[in-house]
Design a protein around this nucleic acid. Structure first.
Lengths: 153, 153
DNA sequence: TATTGTTATACTCTATAACTATA
DNA sequence: TATAGTTATAGAGTATAACAATA
């Protein structure tokens, strides 16, 4: 018998299934929130700002694992959409103070509800225990591999 | 007590963890295969061609869940890289016969090995049983939700 | 000089839609 | 007219690097 199955199938990999499901979940979420005029990347930014109240761009970049250039463009769009306000700090004018506008602050809970609904839609069929198991396994991989930064795409 | 926790955290969602891990796995794979000069989208195409031997672009588009325009551009790049050959069918000259070149066919097992290694790197710490459980849960979601098409990004 | 942020450039991925060639 | 494929256009996401302003 010669060696066989030297070439694994795409779907022989856990990474394949992970990406498969993840892409569908994200895509579905994207469709939901674009009815509110935001992209997933923008959502991640405003959700972060919702908690910190005010933040500098470079802190966001660190927290979200994006470059300063990327953040700059994202914030540009959010400012255009009147969801984020940008003003330079008085104490150090290199910094910017980023904060949600009232309408930005209003929007976050609505988007969070869409995120909840999306999760329910995809994982609602799993038993509570199975959901926890899945979450735990994923978190374990994050810990074991020391993964950092929030994925945005 | 007023209602609290109206706004769920990003990481309160299973979708978040899925995307988090998936993005890292895919990114790591991307880094591995770009040393061989291919992107993940290109890999998916040549892996598909490896099995079918020869195929029309529109069949690939269906199988991979991409538009004809997207396939056209991908195949362009693969032809430029001499991994895929493209010639129009004699029986129906609207069709193209797509096939791996010898070097393309050579490359696929090497990339498959990189995919195997990448999977091992991320999921090797899990027990066999846990890996199966994870895979099964993901496949169940695919079935329950009737998900179609291969995600490429 | 070091740091913050912007801008220019570039590339991948993907879609839509107009278009060409063929049937 | 219907189908296969190409091309033009567009936009999101992201990176790198050069640059301006400030410290």
């Amino acid at each position: 018998m010669a060696a066989r199955v030297q070439v694994s199938a795409l779907d022989a990999h856990l990474g394949y299934w992970l990406r498969y499901v993840s892409n569908h979940v994200s895509h579905s979420f994207k469709l939901k929130i674009e009815t509110r005029g935001v992209t997933v990347a923008e959502w991640v930014v405003i959700r972060a700002l919702y908690d910190v109240k005010v933040g500098a761009a470079h802190l966001l970049a660190d927290e979200l694992g994006l470059t300063r250039g990327a953040i700059s463009k994202l914030v540009d769009r959010l400012v255009t959409k009147s969801l984020v306000a940008r003003r330079s700090s008085k104490s150090d004018r290199r910094y910017q103070e980023l904060a949600l506008t009232p309408s930005g602050r209003d929007l976050v809970p609505q988007l969070a509800a869409l995120a909840d609904g999306n999760d329910e839609e995809f994982f609602g069929d799993l038993k509570r225990q199975e959901r926890e198991l899945l979450t735990d396994l994923l978190k374990r991989i994050v810990r074991a591999r020391g993964l950092k930064t929030v994925p945005v795409d």
